[in-house]
């Protein structure tokens, strides 16, 4: 009887662990800044999707490149039509793993997320230092990293080269909710 109970409990336990617990951010914020002496360019996307598998420690991010909002219409037009070509490459994605992530730890932990970022059909391995806040199961991730225009084969006409920085600062903030799917 005891053995049977143990087996049932074991199977039940396995069943629970195979149903990975996930959290979702439907309105993540990603913004980028380009600083030059000629002009500063800022854009913000507030509808970035991200899902974390808390047990696997994996993270996926998906964003529509045409959903970035700029200060000037001309900046948006250049970004969508000339630099990113959003009609051909509508999305950018990131798939990675949070190194040493403890989903149960309350409060703040700073971790490195390693993964592959794909934009304009070009995939680069990147590492991002990320602040993770866990407030009773409400997770928030935020951080900053730099990326280089040349890494993604973005062609900037010589006339506008002075207006766009070679290195772009990217900021992100995701607030997650339980994902029931």
């Amino acid at each position: 009887m005891n053995k049977l109970t143990l087996i049932v409990l074991l199977l039940f336990g396995l069943g629970i662990t195979s149903n990975s617990k996930k959290v979702i951010a439907r309105q993540g914020q990603v913004s980028f800044f380009s600083y030059t002496s000629v002009e500063n360019i800022k854009a913000e996307n507030n509808q970035v999707l991200s899902i974390i598998d808390l047990e696997e420690g994996t993270i996926a991010v998906d964003m529509l490149m045409n959903a970035f909002v700029f200060e000037k219409a001309l900046m948006r037009e250049h970004f969508n039509e000339s630099y990113i070509e959003t009609d051909i490459y509508p999305k950018a994605t990131f798939n990675g793993r949070i190194e040493g992530f403890d989903a149960q730890q309350q409060g703040t932990q700073v971790k490195i997320i390693k993964g592959a970022f794909t934009m304009r059909g070009v995939t680069k391995d990147i590492e991002i230092k990320t602040k993770i806040e866990n407030n009773n199961g409400g997770y928030m991730l935020s951080g900053t990293f730099e990326t280089f225009v040349k890494d993604y084969n973005i062609n900037i006409p010589p006339l506008l080269a002075g207006n766009i920085a070679k290195s772009i600062e990217v900021n992100f903030k995701f607030e997650y909710q339980p994902y029931e799917n």
């Binding site: 509808q47 529509l64 045409n66």
Partner: peptide
């Protein structure tokens, strides 16, 4: 209409 991820996005 901006497109679709998990959800549809309108700005």
């Amino acid at each position: 209409l901006k497109g679709s991820l998990n959800d549809i996005i309108l700005l």
